[in-house]
Nucleic acid binder design. Structure first.
Length: 266
DNA sequence: CGGGGCTCCTGTGCGC
DNA sequence: TGCGCACAGGAGCCCC
């Protein structure tokens, strides 16, 4: 569930809190979370590492340690990070000097952590499309126009554009008044331009409000985001459209629940 | 290439 | 009331 705004909120907090600190130890409670290297080597390499930088690429968080090692954290659906004391339900606990802990929380255990000497060569990272915020409106139009698939599928495809997930894809399409099932290459220039502006606006708003806590997501202090109450269409099936009062409909697109207003969106 | 469906996992909430 | 199932969401994978 953490999409770009949630990952960016975590990145900024981590940058403030753990950069410059030393990871004195790591407690791997659920070895399944550590995808590489083998857990014993992972622990050995993490121990006494210094934290240099926090990078975000799409929805992935990358912690640069010991100058040229990278801890790649993908929270997937239910993952989140909690800084403070070691937490009861933590899956992995990174211990810092002063006995502070960064807990990797993940109820559904779908997230993953990797430690590598490079992150750019990781297949998942290599295949990511451009960051939305690095795109000009013209570049965005080219990406969209070259796709035959439903526009919502394209927005959620990390290889096309990195960072949007099910919440913000629905939300930006609603705000741009475009039906989620429209073929991307059928959209008019004006509509794609509108979509670009709305994605930009909704992502910036979500970052400003520190993300949406519609499921497990919390920031590293354990606080919920402030964006979920500002969402206009996500999770509002059957409720009146905030613009025209028509009940919001819900369908499946690409196997994912998709809410939309059958009147406002065309 | 596109699309559908299954998988990983577990808590919630719905319908019968 | 209680049980069982669908669903939630990110991404990889397989199959047609």
């Amino acid at each position: 569930m953490p999409e770009l705004p949630e990952a960016e909120t975590i990145r900024r907090d981590l940058e403030r809190i753990i950069v410059g600190k030393i990871i004195t130890d790591v407690n791997v409670i659920k070895p399944k979370v550590i995808k590489e290297p083998p857990v014993e080597r992972f622990k050995k390499e993490i121990k006494n590492a210094s934290v240099n930088e926090i990078i975000r690429r799409g929805k992935a968080l990358i912690v640069r340690i010991n100058q040229d090692k990278y801890l790649i954290i993908h929270l997937r659906i239910s993952g989140w990070l909690l800084y403070g004391k070691p937490a009861e339900k933590a899956r992995v606990v990174f211990i810092f000097s002063g006995a502070d802990a960064l807990n990797y929380m993940d109820q559904r255990l779908l997230g993953e952590i990797k430690l590598r000497s490079s992150y750019r060569d990781l297949a998942f990272i290599r295949n990511l499309g451009p960051e939305f915020f690095s795109l000009t409106e013209g570049e965005f139009k080219n990406i969209i126009k070259n796709q035959k698939r439903a526009i919502k599928i394209v927005l959620m495809d990390q290889r096309a554009i990195a960072g949007l997930g099910n919440i913000y894809a629905q939300e930006s399409l609603y705000r741009a008044r475009i039906l989620p099932g429209r073929r991307a290459n059928d959209l008019k220039d004006k509509e794609i331009g509108r979509l670009y502006k709305k994605i930009e606006a909704v992502l910036k708003e979500a970052i400003k409000y520190r993300g949406s806590s519609v499921d497990a997501y919390k920031d590293i202090a354990g606080h919920k985001g402030g964006m979920e109450s500002r969402l206009k269409v996500y999770g509002r099936k059957g409720k009146p459209c905030v613009v025209c009062k028509t009940p919001i409909k819900k369908i499946k697109i690409g196997g994912r629940g998709t809410c939309f207003c059958p009147v406002c969106q065309k």
